[in-house]
Each structure stands twice: as C-alpha cells, then as structure tokens.
Design a binder for these strands. Sequence first.
RNA 1: CGCGGAGUAGAGAAAUGGUAUCUCGGGAGGCUCAUAACCUCCAGAAGUUGGUUCGAUUCCAACCUCCGCAACCA
Length: 477
Amino acid sequence: MSKNFYITTTLPYANGTPHVGHTMEFIRADIIARYKRQLGDKVLFNTGMDEHGQKIAEKAEELGKSPQEYVDQIANEWKDFCKRINMSYDSFSRTTSSQHKKVAAKLWEKCLENGYIYKKDYQSKYCVGCELEKQDSDLQDGVCPDHPNRALELIDEENYFFAFSRFQKELLALYEKENHVVPEFRLNEIKGFVDAGLHDFSISRLKEKMPWGVPVPGDDEHVMYVWFDALANYISCLGWGTHDDTLFKSYWDDATTVQFCGKDNLRQQSAIWQGMLLAAGIKTTDTIFVEGHITSGGVKMSKSIGNVVDPSLYLDTYGTDAVRYYIARHLHNVQDADWTKESFHEAYMANLVNGIGNLTNRILQMASSYGVSLEGEPHIHLEQNLLESYDFNGEMNAIFKIIGEMDQFITDEAPFKKVKTDPDAAAEDVRYLLEKLWEVTMRIAPIMPETYGKMRVALEENKKPETPLFPRIELGA
RNA sequence: CGCGGAGUAGAGAAAUGGUAUCUCGGGAGGCUCAUAACCUCCAGAAGUUGGUUCGAUUCCAACCUCCGCAACCA
C-alpha cells in the first residue's frame, strides 16, 4: 500500500532573486520528493513565495510598481529558476493567491475562536534614522547606537497578539516525538529556547501604516503580520479550511509531513508554526529538517566582500546535475558548509567527469564493441536508503563506492584482455557491469534526474553516449 | 562564569574504549576498455594539560581557539 508524503520548502521572501542557500534547500527537498516517488509513495511537494509585508511594499514603490505587479514578476523569475534546477514541485504556493488569503483568514479565525488571539496595547520604539523599530536590547543608553542624536519615536497602538506563551508545555511534549526536529542538535537548541519561556507576540499591523498584507478577519483596521500569513501557506496549498479539503486530508492528516528550512528558520518552523497549528487544533508537522548555511571561503557571503556565490553561474557552466550533485555530496548535511569555485570544480572533475561519466563510457564501449547486452531492463529492487534519514552525503558516498568498485573490477578482471582469449568470460564480466550500471542509474535518479535520463538511454541503446555525460571543463570559466 | 555547539592528515568529512576510514590534493609505479581517464603502492592527522582504564582520538575535568543563539526588525 502506498503511503502519502508531504514535503515543503520554506517560502522565500519575494524581495530578491534566488541565492545559493535557497538553491540548496530547494534541491534537497526535491531529492527527497523524487526519492519518495521512486519508492512508490504518493507525494505532494510544495514550494512558493512569501509576498506580503512592508519590505515588499517599499521595494515595489522604489521600482514604481504596484506591489502585486512586483511580486508577479518576482514569482515568474523564481518559477524559471525552479525549472532550471529541475524542481519537481506539485504546488507553487503564493501568499497573494486568493486561496491562500482565504485559508490564512480561516486559520486566524480558528485561533481566535479557540482563544489564542487577543488584542493588546503594543508599544515600541522607532528610530527614524534607521527607519526601524528598536528593541530595548538594540539600544545603548536608551538611544539608537547608529543615530544617537535622534530621539526615538514612541509607537503606541493596539495590536492583535498570539498567545504563544500558552504552548510551552505542549511544544516541549512535541519535541519528545522522534525526529520532530532533525538534526538532534537543532532539536536541543529549540528545546532550550522553549524551555526558557515563551512570550506572546504581535501578529497584526495597522493597515493605515502597512496595507500590504492579508486583512484581519472582522477588523478593517488591521492586516496580519507577515509571519502569521506566510506560515499558513504550508496548509493553504492543501486547501485546509476551504470547501474542498480532500488534499489536506490526504497530504497532511493522513500523510507523513516534512518541512525543510535553513537554520535561521528553526524558531519559526519548529516553535511558532507548531504553536499556530496547536492553536488551531491541526496536526503538527512530523519532521522539520534544518540545514546549515553556506559560506564562501570560510566566511559568510556578503556583497561587500564580493564572495557571493551565484548559483546561475554554476548552472550555466557545469549544468543542473553538477550543481545538484555538489549540493548533495559536498555540502555538509546539516552543518555550515563552504562553497568555493575550486572545490566545486574539483568535485565535478574528479567524480562526475572522471567518475560516473568515464565509467559509463568504458562499460558501454565494451558492451557495444563486443556485442554484449542484457536481455531487457534488469529489475532493480529499490529499497529505502540513506535518503530516508536525509543523509545526502552518505547516500552519495554509498553510490560512489559502487562506482569505484566497478572501476576496480574492470582493472582486476580486464575484460578488454579476456575478450581476445576467452570471449565468453569477457561477456560475463560486461553483463555484470551493465547490471551494476543500471543499479547506479536508478540510485542517482532522484539526485541527478537529467543524468539518469541520459544513462537510461545509453543502457537501452547499449552504446556509449554520443556526447560525454559530463564534458571536461577548464577552471576559471 | 548567559545558553548551546565544534576542534581528526594540505582541504573537506566519517567511525571508534584496543591496527583511525573515506573523498580530493601530493609522490612513485602499472594498465590501455574509457572523457590525458582507470588501478596499485607511498607520505601525511586526533587543540593543550590532567584524570578514569591493562589500554582513550573515543569517557570525565580544566584550559585554549572558533562558531551559533540571546525573541515582534518577514
């Protein structure tokens, strides 16, 4: 019986173009989605855009566009990007869609009905110099450290609050469930956070100050704070709370649910969002997988240092599968990882060009020139592998171990020599190699779908690819 | 003493109370099916100091170093 599986990325905020961190999160979630489908599960894979909030409104104004025009354009750019990295998403969820807005409102009403939303005075300090609200912890001697000569403006307005503090016990109990947060050190981090005590937080803004958001149901003066609205997307894409919630029933209630996020999102996903689900009486997420950040040359990427990794460059030069390969194998599963053009190039040359590409050629060259082939496609029994526990690095190492063993087998058995003296023995070797190559082909499918396609064609036609799977490339291009 | 991580060959990772493994890189040989590819061998590592133990890289303590987090700024 097939199982239902739901997986989602976080929704990137629509104020910029995709960077390498999004690329990693998207590709890894996609690998899991493809892996689950390959095992026969019914999968719903969600991604999308978070399109409300002040920064979007400001950015649009800067460009002389309406917010909607602006986010429409950004959404198209992101969809193109998803195509380039071969994202097999089933749902591209935009928080400005009418379905999303309806569901977000419904979620709000449900939380309100259950007594977890209330109205309260909200006071904050606003630095006109920074054009930002400031917390007491941001201030030095009661003034903004960057603009000590400007008086802080006091904001005093009535806002809606979410009774987050009431979920401390339930959240801590939730964290005892196996694999609720992976890896374990992130689980401990969030436990520590919740254990230290929770504060209620504001979840609305005055519409007159910030109109670009989902209206608060039954109150024309407020819009939802962007976090509340954005998190709702994980269930709005399934039609929770609408007249047709069949998807929600299949892919949330009756499914294993998995959310991917970067470490900067740990709190939002594993505490705030889970609290919101609890407040609305909805099943909590089964697993939240938390990734590290990508550094470049050992330091945080920043525009001023000029070490920002542009994924497009790599996609153009090395191809989509090379990027997917590098992300799966050479960036640490859960720790911060370094991405440099040297290490990328090295990994590409050593493992894709000289490894899998070269191996495919040598096997199929022998097969076609000796006239050896398999009778039909061998039945490869796919089993759960290390991807089951999000061990991308481990699964890749396991696959490349097989590749190494095949290269060694060719050297040891030397079918290219045997063919002159004992053709039958050589044919047997080659058939063994073809079977193994099928196995590798099936196993790389979720990780490198294009390469999978090319290798299948080569195996079916029993001849080496006309153009190399991975061409040699000079460093520095 | 806020809380929490982490320190393993030139680089990145892994495992482990008892010959420390893998990938890349370096050196030497071999092979010719293959994309100057492939195979073999060699050199090269556990932050420091103590403790527990027959034995510690692994457990414990202290120190040193690095890194996260410390809440409405989406």
